[in-house]
């Protein structure tokens, strides 16, 4: 099974917080591949895919940030219509919950957080999808 490592960062509800986190990582020379922000009126969650998740996690922890590393699936998608619908269909047919998803559109990569990584990986790769490991996300071969 191949998975990508996502940083899940808790954001207190205060202005500029997400910016500060990105800046902390930028100052440390860590590239952000993609990110997604979810929030309520009390707090937010920032999800980041970065090149060195463990190092980035340590840097953020030292800065007093609450951060977890979560394994997510990174699926390559092509330009055919209906491909996302197909993924949803395959997962739900196997009783796998999709907690959230976001995309890195430029690279046509879809990041999925599902209830069962192992099973979802088998089903998607068995149905012709190509899933990438964390390292593969950052290798040049996968640049489009």
């Amino acid at each position: 099974m191949k998975t990508a490592k996502q940083l899940s960062v808790f954001l207190e509800n205060k202005p500029g917080h997400a910016y500060n986190i990105c800046k902390t990582l930028g100052d440390a020379g860590i590239n952000i591949f993609t990110l997604s922000l979810a929030d309520t009126n009390q707090f937010g969650l920032l999800r980041l895919i970065v090149e060195k998740p463990e190092a980035a996690g340590e840097i953020l922890k030292k800065a007093g940030v609450i951060v977890n590393i979560t394994e997510v699936l990174a699926v390559k998608i092509d330009n055919r219509p209906g491909v996302l619908a197909k993924i949803y269909e395959l997962l739900s047919a196997s009783d796998i919950n999709l907690e959230y998803a976001y995309a890195f559109a430029m690279r046509r990569i879809f990041l999925l957080r599902v209830s069962d990584n192992e099973k979802a990986f088998q089903i998607l790769s068995g149905n012709g999808f190509s899933l990438l490991s964390h390292e593969e996300l950052f290798s040049n071969e996968n640049e489009n």
């Binding site: 996502q6 899940s8 808790f10 979810a38 929030d39 309520t40 707090f43 969650l45 999800r47 609450i66 951060v67 977890n68 979560t70 907690e99 959230y100 957080r113």
Partner: peptide
């Protein structure tokens, strides 16, 4: 704390 929040809005 990190162990409490997981990675979803729902968990919080």
């Amino acid at each position: 704390s990190a162990e409490l929040f997981g990675d979803t809005i729902r968990s919080i």
